Simulated assay, not measured.
Amino acid sequence: MSPTGWALLGMLSGGEEMSGYDIKKWINWAIRFFYSSPAYSQIYSELKRLERLGLVSSRVDAGVRSRRMYKITESGLAAVTRWANEDPVEAPTLKHNPILRMMLGHLLKPGRLREILAGHAAYAEQLQQAAATEVRWTSEQPAWSYARLALKWSEQYYAAERELALQMIKDLDAAEEAFGEAGREGVQFPMPEYWYEVERRIAAEDTPGVEDPSA
Rank of each mutant, 00 (worst) to 15 (best):
L127N: 10
E125L: 15
M168D: 13
A150K: 03
E125H: 13
L113Y: 04
T93P: 06
G63F: 10
M103V: 11
S58W: 04
M168N: 14
Q126I: 07
K170F: 15
A159C: 08
A118L: 10
L77N: 08
G119P: 11
D61T: 12
L108Q: 14
G76P: 01
Q42E: 15
I27Q: 13
G20H: 07
R49A: 12
Y44D: 03
L47D: 12
E181P: 04
E90G: 10
E176F: 06
P213N: 04
S154N: 00
A79D: 08
E205Y: 15
Y40R: 09
A160N: 14
G105N: 13
R136I: 00
E86R: 12
A91H: 05
I23A: 05
D87I: 01
P98L: 10
G76E: 04
L9D: 02
V135A: 05
E134K: 01
E115H: 09
D22H: 13
A165I: 15
P208S: 14
S139Q: 07
L94V: 08
L151V: 02
T81L: 05
W195M: 05
W29Q: 02
P38D: 03
L108M: 12
P88I: 05
L55Y: 14
Y196V: 08
L127F: 09
H120A: 04
M11C: 04
E74V: 05
L166A: 07
E211P: 14
A178G: 10
W29N: 05
K25T: 08
R136L: 04
M18P: 08
S57L: 11
E211T: 13
S19F: 00
A30F: 01
Y146F: 06
A203R: 09
G111L: 13
K170S: 02
W6A: 10
D212R: 05
E205R: 13
S37P: 00
A175D: 06
E163T: 15
L12Y: 00
Q128H: 09
W137Y: 07
W137F: 03
Q141L: 02
E205S: 09
W195F: 15
D87S: 06
Y21W: 13
P88E: 10
M11S: 01
P142Y: 10
P3K: 00
A91Y: 06
A175M: 14
Q126D: 09
A160D: 14
